[in-house]
Write a protein that binds this DNA or RNA. Sequence first.
DNA 1: GCCGTTTTCGGCCCGACTGTTTTCAGTCG
Length: 572
Amino acid sequence: MKNREVADILRKTAQLLDIKGDNPYRIRAYERASQTIESLTKDVEELAREGKLETIPGIGADLANKIREILKTGTLSTFEELKKEIPPVLLTFLEIPGLGPKKVKVIYEKYGITSIEDLEKACLQHKIAKLPGFGFKTEENILKGIRLFRERTGRRPLGEVLPLAEEVVFLLRNRAPVIDIAIAGSIRRQKETVKDIDILITTQQAETTMKVVAELPLVEEIIALGDTKTSVRLRSGIQMDVRVVEPEAWGAALAYFTGSKAHNIRIRELALERGLKINEYGVFRGEERIAGRTEEEVYAVLGLPFIPPELREDRGEIEVALQGKLPQLVNYEDILGDGHVHSKYSDGSASLEEIILKAEALGLSWVAICDHSQGLKIAGGVPVEELWKKKKRIEELNNRSQKVKLIMGAEVDILSDGTLDYPDEVLKEIDFVIAGIHTGFQQDERQITFRLVSALKHPLVHAIAHPTGRVLGEREPYAVNMEEVLEAAKTYGKALEINAYYKRLDLNDIYVKASVEKGIPLIIGTDAHHVDQMDFLKLGVGVARRGWCEKKDLLNTLSYEKVIEWSKKHKS
DNA sequence: GCCGTTTTCGGCCCGACTGTTTTCAGTCG
């Protein structure tokens, strides 16, 4: 959790410098450092102890000192000084759509406004329109931005937005004269949460296409309407940007609009070093376009292999690609099983038969049925007698079913003292024991970590479910030292779950990457409580790919027989 | 503030759209 805190202070420092009007490149240095620290798979504190801070790209002597200061004192004197000059509440102004650092600065300096309420009042009194560079239109936009800011729920889970984006693509394919159309942006990168929907189109009739976009039934409001770019807000509140380019620029534009911004910046710097220029229309040597039709082409002229969208975060993928050592990411087609599904035996809605049918439809060959353990009454925890019935039923079905086998599993609660919710003689009879924390979220870091490590140490446990306990937009992760948890998983040869339920995605991409680096086995489980939720498997694969997972890193890519073999080996 | 098979100083990604402007700054992605 330390990395996040350091990154936070660096980011806020950058934003304050931005409002102050400092050197833009200095600001960028802070921003980049913040992003880099946030996506480190190692503890920044450990790197500091080892004296390796300066080896992190984008961190020189000065920033290394500042990071050491943050680690030592919990804050940064540069940051504290800035806060005296510029009230930190102005940082929230930056979150109002339409307001950037320059306008915020003017508003603060001319009127001393330091709260959203005062800003709203000033707009209503038409004081803002009088400021230089402002006007009535700006004033209206700020008021609208304040309304949006207030009702905004922040970033949304990918699993919520993806179906919307797919519907838009479907509608435009049918209603507009499009040649190519694709979802770009953070959705294409499979980021766990997204801020907006980016759609890229090639067409011979840009104007008509833009008109169709603006008139889609899902559209609530048109934010900007141009020849090649249209921004709208959908009824669900999310913003959607649609761009049109000519077919010759498809690859360049797709790369550009897929991002991430940090990845794009690095790619363009690389192009400059080679005397080339990249924009969304292609790769240029002088006036001549030398690539752009496909993404492969764009990367190739820079001497790079195709970099999968999920890796494009400037987390080392470019350096690795230059060395020709990109990971062979796991594909959805490699997935043979779902590691975590609930049935009617606990709080799931599906029978074992229905789960088999769904698995077959998904092309899976096994499913681990992991119902809650006895103590978790609220979630229909399975008492021991029921468990034996379930085991018998699974055996019967396995004898009958050829294509899909069920694995007798259980999601066993890790109790407050670190012991498990079934006795050992029961656990012995379960082929896949995935242990998880479902109560006592408020305990301190020492106790939560102790509980997880105890479970990993237990000889009858195979894996840890949703290891950090976070629920996107609802619940922060519990206080846990993940370094220790990862070390324990490695030591005892246990697996960690990538819980694919759309609001969990836990482990996240960064911890997945850390696990892969340590050689810890991972298992994707949808945590489905309804057969439809088994579709979330795709989201799990997205997280795995973002965490640099290869086929060998995931237990889901093993055949039923091999999983059972692994399970037996790890129960000793 | 970072960084260097052109550089230890002088560079640092690129363009669309809007609004307030008579030529461009600010915001956004």
